[in-house]
Simulated assay, not measured.
Amino acid sequence: MTLLEVKALKKTYTTRLGGHLVPALTNVTFSVEKGEYLAIMGESGSGKTTLLNIVASLDQPTGGQVLLEGKDIGKIRERDLAEFRRKNLGFVFQDFNLLDTFSLRDNIYLPLVLSGMHHEEMARRLAPLAKKLSIEDILEKYPYEVSGGQKQRVAVARACITDPRLLLADEPTGALDSRSADQLLDLFEQINREGQTILMVTHSAKAASRASRVLFIKDGEVFHQLYRGGRTNEAMFTQIADTLTALATGGADRG
């Protein structure tokens, strides 16, 4: 079942002085199936972050459509967008985006508080999630009192507690050491196996090697894609690294 459809997406920015048009996305089309784990890769300036922002309804395209379960998110009224995000999307960012004045528990609860949920239901949702993410013992601490890996696990809990249709991750391992990154990627694999659809933007071939499909963006277009098939993580990593090298040197075929 198709969850997300991106159709002929275009995004053009105007320079600050208004003299030039800069294309960020020129013609991006792809779909994501429910339960899929998709990684998007590309060099800096390739358009992948712009693409993620549009899918997240944080930016508007110049042309094309983004459909979530058939609903055109570009037609959602501005005043309804925040509610749409809370109900449908979970976000995991490179820099965690936790509030230092809130305990970790309250950071996780925040999207539920904004939606008006009762405290008893919030606690019921958090209990199994905290156990799965191994954060039960730190919920009363504050972000500045825990490690980067713990912060990111809390961020994952905040993203997942709303039971989102789509989990969006922007360079989720970028601020983590290698051990914490591996732990986070293990968690992503686990929640994906449990049915969570994930769309992740990353520079890391190691992170992308955990996905079921990798989409490569170059010059604002989908240039290439790679399916896992029966590959191991190690074989997937090698294939991704080879593809990135080929893209950088102009040796890969578009497709």
Rank of each mutant, 00 (worst) to 15 (best):
residue 229 G to M: 14
residue 128 P to L: 09
residue 19 G to W: 04
residue 227 Y to W: 01
residue 206 K to C: 04
residue 90 G to S: 08
residue 128 P to V: 11
residue 215 L to N: 11
residue 142 Y to D: 05
residue 111 P to A: 01
residue 184 L to R: 02
residue 230 G to W: 10
residue 231 R to P: 08
residue 254 R to T: 15
residue 237 F to C: 05
residue 45 G to W: 09
residue 8 A to C: 13
residue 161 I to K: 03
residue 205 A to N: 13
residue 105 R to L: 13
residue 180 S to F: 04
residue 31 S to L: 10
residue 193 R to I: 06
residue 160 C to A: 02
residue 184 L to V: 14
residue 44 S to T: 10
residue 132 K to T: 14
residue 236 M to L: 00
residue 193 R to A: 08
residue 176 L to S: 04
residue 173 T to G: 05
residue 153 R to M: 04
residue 170 D to A: 07
residue 156 V to W: 02
residue 65 Q to K: 15
residue 124 R to F: 01
residue 235 A to T: 09
residue 225 Q to A: 13
residue 145 E to K: 12
residue 175 A to P: 07
residue 13 Y to D: 10
residue 101 T to R: 09
residue 156 V to I: 15
residue 134 S to N: 14
residue 208 A to T: 09
residue 80 D to R: 14
residue 134 S to R: 12
residue 102 F to I: 00
residue 183 Q to R: 15
residue 66 V to P: 00
residue 118 H to L: 11
residue 90 G to T: 10
residue 202 T to S: 04
residue 164 P to D: 01
residue 164 P to F: 02
residue 214 V to Q: 13
residue 95 D to M: 10
residue 229 G to W: 14
residue 79 R to M: 09
residue 228 R to V: 06
residue 63 G to S: 08
residue 10 K to Y: 12
residue 21 L to H: 15
residue 26 T to F: 01
residue 88 N to T: 03
residue 140 E to S: 13
residue 162 T to Q: 13
residue 121 E to A: 07
residue 112 L to G: 04
residue 239 Q to Y: 03
residue 253 D to C: 06
residue 242 D to A: 15
residue 7 K to T: 15
residue 75 K to S: 09
residue 164 P to G: 03
residue 51 L to T: 07
residue 214 V to F: 12
residue 61 P to M: 15
residue 71 K to I: 13
residue 135 I to T: 03
residue 40 I to Q: 00
residue 250 G to D: 09
residue 224 H to F: 08
residue 238 T to K: 14
residue 241 A to C: 08
residue 209 S to I: 06
residue 41 M to R: 09
residue 203 H to M: 02
residue 30 F to M: 07
residue 158 R to F: 07
residue 203 H to A: 02
residue 120 E to W: 13
residue 18 G to L: 02
residue 155 A to M: 05
residue 217 I to P: 05
residue 152 Q to C: 07
residue 135 I to F: 06
residue 98 L to P: 04
residue 86 R to S: 01
residue 199 L to N: 02
residue 223 F to G: 02
residue 77 R to W: 05
residue 136 E to A: 01
residue 37 Y to G: 11
residue 220 G to A: 08
residue 93 F to A: 09
residue 228 R to N: 05
residue 241 A to I: 08
residue 165 R to K: 12
residue 21 L to F: 12
residue 241 A to E: 13
residue 207 A to Q: 07
residue 34 K to G: 04
residue 115 S to L: 11
residue 202 T to Q: 03
residue 176 L to W: 04
residue 225 Q to I: 10
residue 41 M to S: 04
residue 250 G to F: 08
residue 96 F to R: 13
residue 119 H to K: 14
residue 4 L to D: 07
residue 244 L to E: 14
residue 237 F to I: 03
residue 130 A to T: 01
residue 205 A to V: 08
residue 11 K to G: 05
residue 231 R to Y: 15
residue 89 L to Q: 12
residue 128 P to W: 04
residue 202 T to D: 06
residue 206 K to S: 05
residue 209 S to T: 06
residue 214 V to G: 12
residue 7 K to S: 13
residue 237 F to Y: 15
residue 159 A to G: 04
residue 211 A to R: 00
residue 243 T to V: 12
residue 31 S to D: 14
residue 203 H to N: 03
residue 68 L to Y: 00
residue 165 R to D: 02
residue 47 G to P: 06
